[in-house]
């Protein structure tokens, strides 16, 4: 067993869905086990941090790191696993781009603490206690990992070899990567994306696409979309146009617009900005020649006014990794 290459998986700020996705390989997990020594995964195995520290540098062949960097502990583990791994892969949207935890970047740390520990209707906290890195008690000093002001992606704290996008990555894509590695297939240059396409979800979506012009937007609950036509053309904001392909267009297949979890397509620096630019280009506000500026604004607002949360819509998965990164303080 010792001669098999070591495989590890670690979770930082994440929901655990990435581990589930790995387990969803089903019986293929046995192939993984046959090819690798799966030796570290706090969710599934009992290996401890000290066991990793005891390994020589580069002892782990591949680490799948899921989760964003929210706390000092996340960062510490990221750096440790970087040192101990030959190949460090940012696995899943949180680690690759920040994902849902990253939406917290629209608020300060203090706002977040206040919302969770003080203003929260379901919490009873008469002493107004907020977790701090160090707390003095009679027995000595209690320590908690520091909670950073900002969520960062894995690549923003350490050197990353590859990225596997998705919230979570689709099992068939995980298998594609694993089987390619087992077969010794050539990998793309460092920094590349594995287990996904180069284009956008529309590439894999079977819906019928026309030249786009959209006069009215709907929220998903307002419309039962037709089965044939592109959802975006029907007025549902489908992020598929600005989202990397690889998932197999699962959501549009079942009448749900893509929400963007595979992140930006190759070459796109900022998924949210791209989506906004594309939507701005295709909304239909009629002929504006000779119209007063206010009237043009009014028409634009009439189309976009129905979106309740721009940031949550366009940067749901990609805020920390985007050009924007978060709230400008």
């Amino acid at each position: 067993m010792a001669d098999k290459p070591k495989l590890s998986m670690y979770w930082a700020a994440a929901c655990g869905g990435c581990e589930i996705a790995l387990v969803n390989l089903n019986e293929k997990i046995l192939d993984v086990d046959a090819a690798f020594d799966f030796m570290f995964c706090p969710c599934l195995l009992d290996t401890k941090k000290k066991d990793i520290e005891a390994l020589p540098d580069g002892a782990i062949a591949i680490t799948l790191f899921n989760g964003a960097i929210r706390t000092a502990e996340n960062e510490e583990m990221a750096c440790l696993l970087r040192k101990k791994s030959q190949t460090l892969i940012a696995f899943g949207s949180c680690s690759a781009e920040g994902c849902i935890p990253g939406l917290a970047n629209f608020h300060t740390r203090d706002d977040l603490m206040k919302a969770v520990y003080l203003d929260n209707a379901t919490i009873d906290n008469p002493g107004n206690i907020i977790p701090r890195p160090e707390t003095e008690v009679a027995e000595g000093t209690l320590q908690l990992p520091a909670f950073y002001d900002r969520v960062r992606t894995l690549a923003q704290v350490t050197d990353v070899d590859f990225f596997i996008p998705g919230c979570p990555p689709e099992p068939h894509q995980i298998w594609n990567v694993v089987s390619a590695v087992i077969a010794g297939a050539p990998l793309p240059p460092k920094g590349g994306v594995l287990g996904a396409g180069r284009s956008a979800v529309c590439e894999e979506c079977d819906r019928k696409k026309e030249d786009k012009k959209i006069a009215k937007l709907f929220r998903t609950y307002e419309l039962v979309p037709g089965k044939e036509a592109c959802l975006l053309e029907q007025g549902l904001i489908c992020m598929g146009i600005a989202t990397r392909d690889g998932c197999g267009a699962l959501c549009p297949k079942v009448n749900m617009p893509c929400t963007g979890c595979y992140g930006p397509p190759e070459g796109v620096l900022d998924q949210g900005a791209k989506m906004v630019a594309a939507l701005g280009s295709i909304i239909d506000i009629g002929d504006t020649k000779g119209l007063a500026e206010e009237e043009i604004f009014r028409r634009i607002d009439a189309v976009f006014g129905s979106i309740p949360d721009y940031a949550g819509m366009f940067y749901k998965y990609s805020l920390p990794g985007s050009i924007l990164k978060g709230r400008i303080s």
Partner: peptide, 8 residues
């Protein structure tokens, strides 16, 4: 290779 055919 990058065009998804979205027709935007």
């Amino acid at each position: 290779r990058r065009c998804s055919g979205c027709r935007v």
